[in-house]
Design a protein around this nucleic acid. Structure first.
Length: 565
RNA sequence: UGGGGUGUGGCCAAGCGGUAAGGCACGGGACUCUGACUCCCGGAUCCGCAGGUUCGAAUCCUGCCACCCCAGCCA
């Protein structure tokens, strides 16, 4: 029984509970995550990783990380490294069970030979085009290959010569002999080994034949003793083949396998206003729509991490979206909610003015500086306080002043008062504009009797705005992000267009800001809430002590802005 | 005219014959030195549609409809 998820309920947990009740697999639970090292992993993979890992954890089972590296021409060490880093960051632990499907190439070769000896696999000389033609179509059955009935001796000989490099790429394949008339195309004598003279990132030049996924994957699961092999829906049609391979392994090569794995499929994750396929993400990177796999706008784990999202928030999100079999698209708002909820209790409050408007407090003495105490985490005494300097010249948010305010506006406007967070109440006395009519400076007066915590004025103002001393504030570049795509479904395009035509031209906005000097005391991994604005994180690549760069992780909810847009 | 899969409020998602959980979003209100947070309140007479079985169905049966996946020597 699971320890920590009594309320969780999904069809996979139901299957596991049932299997346990029935005593299957001697009560073992063993899952795995099998990435192909051919790209960066994204939040959709996080769903799969965390699902597999949490099942193992909650049921006191095991979780393997196994790279499915059967196709050397697509795979690289760089991706192995990035995937390991990303999964570690997510918190999934594979302990000492990091495997590569290529670790078992020798065993797999032996298994293939046993299939041949059992008359269940044959070497086929048909060209790729011919194989396709012989396969038939969705509505018509296929035709048997003319090589289907070669003798075991010939097949064994030919297969070993394939291994020895005697044949050109594409000239011969090993096929499972199943059923060319099956309604399921995967069962029409699937190719299980192909000739490929390519350098493998782990086995080097040892092999010039490589197994296909449908042969390799189920056998690897069986070798590792995986009990529940979870994958996404598009593999549903591969399941009969998965079972065929496992059944044969159990029958012909029992000493190589540890059990009888079962495959279960669930819907992959889609999120509104973004894309999740490796191919599309690659295009965004390669065609320069983003600045790399770790661009903070990308749904990759590397992108989320660089943006400042926490692994806890990602895990919570994956927890809340559920696991089911219906194709679905989760609202980006849920991810944002999970991020805010996580950061709300952790991120220290700092004042940062994103779009500065200068304010001169005319009755504040020229060289007076007053250090005011502000809570790091209001409502949490343990988080302590920090000091913010108040001086004659400060900056407030441009958007916190309106010359001609609408009803119910309780920020600053001519003749009106507002409280500076943690400081005094000020009153706008004069508005200074440039030649174009743009407001460039405000002249205000402050009320000395209204100091935060010691207010004896009896004044009640609704508005509280953030501010930063012009002299003491630190200059910083702030990057504000919007979704990468304008449409909820990026693939929803006009005739002749593709998803890149839906890219949001405002997905990145760069602002020159000014933040409280207190941020200097924190280490650079700290996440802050810039009061009334959002959560921010120092860009791990571009930020430095002399050149602060903050990424907005997510904005705060803004019911006022929403109401008035 | 093939095979596989899915349809529960705007978006996810429980439910497995006993009379529609929860979350997000949304709307209303309270609170507030963050218009944030928090806290209340609101909503499917109905579960793709149509029949049927049953005292009783989203849950069983039948027939439709819609959408998704499959014809790589990719995974």
């Amino acid at each position: 029984m699971p320890e920590s998820n009594e309320e969780k309920s999904n069809f996979i947990l139901a299957i596991i509970n049932k299997d346990l009740d029935e005593g299957k697999n001697q009560g073992r639970i063993h899952t795995r995550f099998p990435p192909e090292p051919s790209g960066y992993i994204h939040i959709g993979h996080a769903k799969a990783i965390l699902l597999n890992y949490s099942i193992a954890r909650d049921y006191k089972g095991k979780f393997n990380l196994r790279f499915d590296d059967t196709n050397p021409i697509k795979e690289e060490q760089e991706f192995v490294d990035s995937i390991i880093r990303d999964i570690q960051w997510l918190g999934a632990e594979w302990e000492d069970r990091l495997f590569f499907t290529s670790d078992y190439f020798d065993t797999k070769y032996e298994f293939a030979c046993r299939l041949i000896k059992a008359g269940r696999a044959y070497v086929c000389d048909l060209s790729p085009d011919e194989i396709r033609a012989y396969r038939g179509t969705l509505t018509e059955p296929g035709i048997d290959s003319p090589y289907r009935n070669r003798s075991v001796e010939d097949n064994l000989d030919l297969f070993s010569r394939m291994k020895n490099g005697e044949f050109l790429d594409g000239s011969k394949v090993l096929r499972a002999k199943i059923d060319m008339a099956s309604g399921n195309l995967n069962m029409r004598d699937p190719v299980i080994y192909r000739v490929l003279h390519a350098h493998h990132h782990r086995t080097g030049d040892k092999w010039c034949i490589y197994p296909m996924y449908d042969f390799d994957h189920p056998f690897s699961d069986a070798i590792e003793g995986i009990t529940h092999s979870l994958c996404s829906l598009e593999f549903t049609d591969n399941r009969p083949l998965y079972d065929w391979i496992v059944d044969n392994a159990l029958e012909l090569f029992p000493e190589a396998v540890k059990g009888r794995p079962r495959q279960y499929e669930f819907a992959r994750l889609n999120i509104t206003n973004t894309v999740m396929s490796k191919r599309k993400l690659r295009r965004l990177v390669e065609e320069g729509f983003v600045q790399g796999w770790d661009d903070p706008r990308m749904p990759t784990i590397a992108g989320l991490r660089r943006r400042g999202v926490t692994p806890e928030a990602v895990a919570d999100f994956c927890d809340r979206i559920g696991v089911a079999r219906s194709t679905s698209t989760v609202d980006m708002a849920l991810l944002e909610h999970c991020i805010r909820e996580d950061l709300n209790t952790k991120a220290h409050r700092i004042m940062g003015v994103l779009e500065p408007l200068k304010v001169v407090i005319t009755n504040w003495p020229e060289d007076r500086v007053e250090w005011l105490e502000l809570d790091n985490l209001p409502g949490n005494e343990d988080a302590g306080r920090h000091l913010a300097p108040m001086a004659r010249e400060i900056y407030i948010e441009e958007g916190d002043f309106l010359e001609d305010p609408p009803k119910k506006y309780h920020r600053l406007s001519p003749g009106k008062e507002v409280r500076l967070k943690g400081a005094y109440i000020i009153k706008c006395e004069e508005v200074i504009k440039d030649s174009t009519g743009k407001v460039v400076e405000l002249r205000c007066t402050y009320d000395p009797n209204t100091k935060s915590g010691e207010d004896s004025s009896g004044k009640k103002v609704r508005g509280v705005i953030h501010w930063v001393s012009a002299e003491h504030g630190l200059r910083a570049t702030v990057r504000i992000y919007e979704t990468l795509f304008l449409n909820e479904n990026p693939d929803d395009t006009e005739e002749g267009q593709d998803f890149t035509d839906n890219i949001n031209p405002h997905s990145l906005e760069v602002l020159n800001c000014i933040v409280e000097p207190a941020v200097e005391k924190y280490d650079r991994q700290s996440r802050f809430q810039f009061i009334r604005k959002g959560y921010f994180y120092q860009d791990p690549k571009d930020s430095s002590k002399d050149n602060l760069v903050y990424n907005q992780i997510v904005g705060l909810r803004d019911s006022w802005g929403k109401k008035n847009k």
